[in-house]
Design a protein around this nucleic acid. Sequence first.
DNA 1: GTCTATAGGTTGATAGAC
DNA 2: GTCTATCAACCTATAGAC
Lengths: 214, 214
Amino acid sequence: MNEKVDTKARILDAAEKLFGERGFESTSLRDITAEAQVNLAAVNYHFQSKDSLIDAVVARRIEPINRLRLGMLDAAGPNPTLEQILRAFLLPVLELKRDAVMPLLGRTLSDPHQFVEKVYKKHLLAISERIHRELAKALPGLPVAELRWRLYFAAGVMTYILSWSKVLPDISGGLCDPSDRQALIDRVIDFLAAGFRAPVNEPAFERVLLEKEG
Amino acid sequence: MNEKVDTKARILDAAEKLFGERGFESTSLRDITAEAQVNLAAVNYHFQSKDSLIDAVVARRIEPINRLRLGMLDAAGPNPTLEQILRAFLLPVLELKRDAVMPLLGRTLSDPHQFVEKVYKKHLLAISERIHRELAKALPGLPVAELRWRLYFAAGVMTYILSWSKVLPDISGGLCDPSDRQALIDRVIDFLAAGFRAPVNEPAFERVLLEKEG
DNA sequence: GTCTATAGGTTGATAGAC
DNA sequence: GTCTATCAACCTATAGAC
């Protein structure tokens, strides 16, 4: 509890911005305190270490997204359609208001280093299982391995949009503008829904069955 | 020209491995020379700087992939099918033999920092334009902005597979095994081809037309 | 809670002997 | 071409005054 414009929040905001722009390793605590206009030692006072700061920055954004996702799934009733599930998965991420959040999440979901333990198992495993279960109900004919693969493909599309949202208009010659969030969400859902509904190819399907039998 | 097992190549191999495992920033030149069992100063002798080393490591893998892609497109004749185009795009990347290359390319294609200039415009712009042109021929009814978006979605799926290939069996409980390359390639192509062929949603389509008119 | 000062370690790069 | 030795710059983290 402090009179000044909360130092702790200023650090989180600055760290979020710079982590997203330059990556976690390339951003020093000095970069962050300079951006936030606070003293260097304030980081280690409010957070214990750079690693804990990264945890706090990531958790602050991922947890509300997951609550929104669960809320949308619950609101869709016991048997949501494929489109409803995909919307619950994507909309809370692709509708984010603050410009700094999408690059941050892009970095977070792209870095395989220790994020399997620190991000996936901590923040994404539960929601991933829930979405997998809903998808299995909505697509009863799809083999479970195929479903799992396609969910990863969908996560890949989402992550790529997050990572490149800032530069996409530039490298597409203005053709792709992610700022119209609703249009983008509709586009992605149409694309992914068609992919999820694609017929399962015979050779690949047979190979899965053979693998199961040994 | 040297008698010993080429120091320069040893550095490239070690750098490729460690860059892929830990990322470019997290890997020091000392890490690389220790892994390669060469002297620290050898890096600055054979390559001028860490940045140039990164360039060399990336270029060594991307350029042959692009040549393979162009060869497959040329071999498919003047009007390749959607599946042929996707196969030319994906197979040279997903069929890579050396384990270290996929994580390296995953890092390379995920890091937005300065890679728009150093990787995209240098190594990916030309092949991206060629694939875009072939896709436009194969899908004549699709608006150009929609096509561009869907090509980015496809790149996102490919990049995600590269980034997570090492941990995918672990976090999927063994359901997803990227080691069967041919099955994976078939899976991805089926998924993406269906996405590319998805009907264009009216609202999104109209919005694009309205934007063009101002 | 906020600051200065600094410890203690790592980094990329190079000079110069062999 | 390969090595040792070293520099100057940077890093995270902390101790201690206010």
